Amino acid sequence: MDALLITALLVVAAALLLLPPAAKSVDLLPTEIGYLNRGGRGAVATALTVLYTADLLEIRYRSTVERSDKPLPSRSELEPFVRAVYTDIHVQARPGALPSRPAVRRGLAALAARLADAGLVPGRFRLLAGRTVLAAAVVLAIVRLAARSGAGEALLALIAGAVVLWRLSRRTIAGHRLLRRLRRDYTRRWSGTPDDDPAPAAGVALVPGHGAPVDAAALGLVASLGAVIGIHVPDFGGWDNGGGGGGDGDGGGGF
């Protein structure tokens, strides 16, 4: 009976966390792809990369970042979140401290809200409700295990399922699928493998200060992962001081 109740709680949590009301087709900006991929840190890393490639940012001692002397472009040339990150770099700053600063924090909330509206991540209410139900299921399972009420293996399996579901809950099923598609398309593009799907997975974004367009998916994925594949992405480091703002993604597996 306890196992059935816990299973029911997990099903409710999965519905809240992984099944959005309606997924929409949207063209994501690089920072939104960075957020989808690695959470708040991914969005900030992507914004820093955009600023760096536009010569608006310099890397200083011990991986701190600082504004360059180059004038800031017009609003139409930088997406809002990139401008928010630039605004909060008053003096030398460590990247890990940026997600907790006011303008960046508001920008991260706006990114999350847009992704939730597109059905790619759970909204704030669904995330809170779903994780509360998950926590209740785990607590109940642990209590029953402690009481040695039987069905120990089943309860342990349900606890393991709850942990997996918690990790997957950073994105909806639609978000996981989109991210997997973006990664697959990106790998094909840079490995030279022919792409069977002629439709682009995301729009093209122009990085200010450069003449060539950079694919939004490539920039968002590479910058947020900190990899260097085809596009030069600086190693900002400095994530050990501060943090928050969504945390890291889970790698996007599962769907």
Score class of each variant (00 low, 15 high):
Met1Cys: 00
Asp2Pro: 09
Asp2His: 07
Asp2Glu: 12
Ala3Cys: 15
Thr7Glu: 08
Leu9Glu: 06
Val11Arg: 05
Leu16Gly: 06
Leu18Asn: 13
Leu18Glu: 10
Leu18Ala: 11
Leu19Trp: 12
Ala23Ser: 09
Ala23Glu: 06
Ala23Phe: 04
Lys24Ala: 03
Lys24Asp: 02
Ser25Gly: 08
Val26Trp: 13
Asp27Lys: 00
Pro30Lys: 03
Pro30Ser: 02
Gly34Leu: 03
Arg38His: 08
Gly39Phe: 03
Gly39Ala: 08
Gly40Leu: 07
Thr46Met: 09
Ala47Lys: 00
Leu51Tyr: 14
Leu57Met: 02
Glu58Ala: 14
Ile59Gln: 00
Ser63Met: 10
Ser63Asp: 10
Glu66Lys: 07
Lys70Arg: 07
Leu72Ser: 08
Ser74Val: 14
Arg75Asn: 12
Glu77Ala: 12
Leu78Cys: 03
Phe81Gly: 03
Arg83Thr: 09
Val85Phe: 03
Tyr86Cys: 05
Tyr86Arg: 07
Gln92Lys: 15
Ala93Gly: 08
Arg94Leu: 11
Ala103Met: 09
Gly107Glu: 02
Leu111Arg: 13
Leu115Pro: 02
Ala116Trp: 01
Asp117Trp: 00
Gly119Trp: 04
Gly119Cys: 04
Pro122Glu: 07
Pro122Trp: 00
Gly123Phe: 09
Arg124Thr: 02
Leu128Val: 01
Leu134Val: 01
Leu134His: 01
Ala135Asp: 14
Ala135Ser: 13
Ala136Arg: 11
Ala136Lys: 12
Ala137Ser: 11
Ala141Glu: 04
Ile142Lys: 05
Ile142Thr: 05
Arg144Asp: 07
Leu145Val: 04
Ala147Gly: 09
Ser149Glu: 15
Ser149Ile: 14
Ser149Thr: 14
Ala157His: 01
Ala157Leu: 02
Leu158Asn: 10
Ala162Gln: 05
Ala162Leu: 09
Leu165Lys: 02
Trp166Val: 08
Arg167Phe: 15
Arg167Gln: 15
Leu168Met: 12
Arg170Glu: 03
Arg170Trp: 02
Arg171His: 04
Ile173Asn: 10
Ile173Thr: 11
Ala174Thr: 12
Arg177Trp: 13
Leu179Trp: 01
Thr187Val: 04
Thr187Glu: 03
Arg188Gly: 05
Ser191Met: 10
Ser191Asn: 07
Thr193Lys: 15
Asp197Trp: 12
Asp197Glu: 15
Pro198Ile: 07
Ala201Arg: 09
Ala202Trp: 12
Ala202Phe: 14
Val204Ala: 08
Ala212Leu: 10
Ala212Gly: 06
Ala212Asn: 10
Val214Glu: 02
Ala216Ser: 01
Ala218Leu: 05
Leu219Phe: 12
Gly220Phe: 03
Ala223Asn: 05
Leu225Val: 11
Leu225Thr: 13
Val228Pro: 00
His232Gln: 05
Gly242Asn: 13
Gly243Phe: 08
Gly244Ala: 10
Gly244Thr: 11
Gly245Ile: 05
Gly245Phe: 07
Asp250Tyr: 15
Gly251Val: 08
Gly254Met: 06
